[in-house]
């Protein structure tokens, strides 16, 4: 019994995942097509990248609620740079990333130096960014031909190269955002698993004081975790802008919760019970696959959030419930 539970905790999630992969394919053969595989992956990239970002802050026992709005403001900034300012798309990318770094840095300083609890600091930041993103365009979506405050029309447009980041495909099959996601995931996995920085981040999450007493500049690491979270969110924002092709004011909604859910589901993968890059990626793919497969089997669209909730609760039971705690 004990062995079975241990096995279930470790591999249960992956077995369920493999099982549903098989099941969907048997019931609906087109599920297994390459193009469908990539369509699943394309569907989860933005949330997946954000989940990787939030993983960093979860590792240091923190939290970043501002990831979704950071991505959203980068959509607006990219559009503003290209459409209103009408300058090169490179600046759209650079400015977005710079903004992501800044937001992360401010979050980090608020939490580490001003000692504001992480949830509150990033909640405040979230609102601040949500408001800020509306200001340059006076609350309007940014698209070519939009009316500017001085009565002229915006003349710039999204650069082809920029759109390629979101809508392009390699070999006419692999979507570019998926490639970006994969590269990021591999780098982050490597950093967390095989470098001293990853080791120290996890250690800080375990016992901050002990790490401090081991001579580590804990504050700097914690700030770094938020900077990384902000930076990664801005990359997600750039890809989102390139996918949507327009500075749409509503684009950030729902991203935060989906990303956090994926990262939490990740705790259950291989029973590690910790935030981890592999888990976050697997978690987000699992949800994407489930929704895709169930939709193919005619599951109505409005049940999607319900399904996500079930997966999350089940994953949390795997993670926390099955490991019996002793009195």
């Amino acid at each position: 019994m004990e062995k079975f539970v241990a096995f279930a905790i470790k591999y249960g999630f992956l077995i369920v995942m493999a099982g549903s992969f098989l099941g969907f394919g048997l019931l609906e053969p087109s599920f297994w097509s390459w193009s469908n595989m990539f369509s699943i992956l394309l569907g989860i990239t933005i949330v997946g990248i954000l989940a990787l970002g939030v993983t960093f802050t979860l590792i240091v026992d923190g939290f970043d609620l501002s990831i979704g709005s950071t991505a959203a403001i980068c959509v607006m900034i990219s559009s503003y740079v290209m459409v209103v300012l009408n300058i090169d798309y490179i600046y759209a990318i650079l400015l977005s990333i710079l903004l992501g770094i800044t937001i992360g840095l401010v979050n980090g300083l608020l939490i580490v130096k001003a000692k504001i609890p992480d949830l509150l600091a990033t909640l405040g930041m979230m609102f601040l960014i949500q408001g800020l993103q509306l200001i340059p365009s006076a609350g309007m979506s940014i698209g070519t031909g939009m009316m500017l405050a001085d009565g002229t029309e915006a003349e710039g447009e999204f650069a082809k190269q920029f759109l390629f980041l979101g809508q392009g495909r390699l070999f006419d099959l692999i979507p570019v955002p998926v490639v970006v996601f994969a590269v990021l995931a591999i780098i982050i996995y490597f950093v967390l698993q095989y470098t001293k920085w990853g080791r120290i981040l996890y250690a800080i999450g375990g016992n901050e004081k002990a790490v401090k007493l081991a001579g580590v500049n804990v504050e700097r690491y914690k700030i770094m975790a938020y900077v990384l979270s902000g930076t990664i969110s801005s990359i997600a924002g750039i890809l989102l802008a390139a996918r949507i092709g327009r500075g749409d004011v509503t684009s950030g909604g729902g991203l935060l919760l989906d990303a956090v859910a994926a990262a939490l589901i990740g705790y259950a993968v291989l029973g590690v019970k910790k935030p981890n890059a592999l888990g976050s990626v697997v978690g987000v793919i699992f949800i994407g696959m489930l929704l895709n497969g169930l939709t193919m089997l005619s599951l109505p669209y409005y049940t999607q959030d319900f399904i996500k909730g079930i997966v999350l609760v089940a994953a949390l039971i795997f993670t926390f419930g099955l490991s019996k705690s002793e009195i």
């Binding site: 469908n36 369509s39 394309l42 569907g43 996918r243 949507i244 327009r246 684009s251 939709t295 193919m296």
Partner: peptide, 14 residues
Amino acid sequence: NQAEANFVYQAINM
């Protein structure tokens, strides 16, 4: 909006 785009691809795959 991006989900809407994804749905088109899923419909194609279906």
